[in-house]
Amino acid sequence: MTQTAPDMIELKGITKEYVKPSGEVHTVLRDINLRIPKGEFTSIVGPTGCGKSTALNLIAGFEPPTEGEVYISEQRLDGINQRAACVFQTENAFPWKTVIDNVSLGLRLRGISKADAYDEARKWITRVGLKGFEGHYPSQLSGGMRKRVSLAQCLIVQPEILLMDESFSALDVHTRQLMEDELLRIWEETSASVFFITHDLEEAIALSDRVIVLTAGPGATIKGDYQIDLPRPRNVAEISFDPAFMRIHQQIWKDLKDEVMISYENANKFTS
């Protein structure tokens, strides 16, 4: 990705605080400044509870930042981000809708006729490898297949930003690698910027153009920002044997390890 591309997402001095039921103020993110160019695949890694998902919520527009602003294509975000789609960790698919109704939903909501929406949905269902399952309900599908539905459901609206909140972390290792490869394959055909949240550093490096490390919460900030210049197309299952991959992994892990230890100590402090 060229660095001259315009910013798709810009976080400007973002701080996010919550008031706990006890009345205490809990700072999740503190003074985050981040620019993500158009078409870049960015991963955010950090220890559990550091506020990765909060960052995603802010970009999606589910909640406003306490301080600072979110800009999408240089426009200030106010309310739901209409240029984004999100693959959640748990379920995206509506259990009361069949696969084709789930996938075509985004188009139907935009007022496209049922026939046209179905035609387009069939293409996407084929693209994610679910041909023949159009009439199935999500409960009849495996976890990996449901993730494929989620992907198709998001990508059919051709979002400029694809948000992924630990999307594959509930899958078993093999399904996960399969889905990661699939994601890369489909992503390379689109021009979407991907904002990928994970706690798995290997996954982050294997998929991304850029990996951002957050510090342990509360009040997480950006600790490191790494460009991953491994050649594409990549094979997720094999790339981890690449010496270049290992070098990058080692480098980032040094940063991340400290934060994980801090987060671990914090957790122990609270429980004991």
């Binding site: 999606a60 589910f62 789609a85 959640f88 748990t90 379920e91 995206n92 909501l109």
Partner: peptide, 28 residues
Amino acid sequence: DRNLINNALLLGASKGQLAKHVIIPSAL
């Protein structure tokens, strides 16, 4: 499910559409 509501909102659902596609089927 909060995720389902968020998902529908991102996919472009208006208030009425949210009711029709998400809230009512779920509450049924």
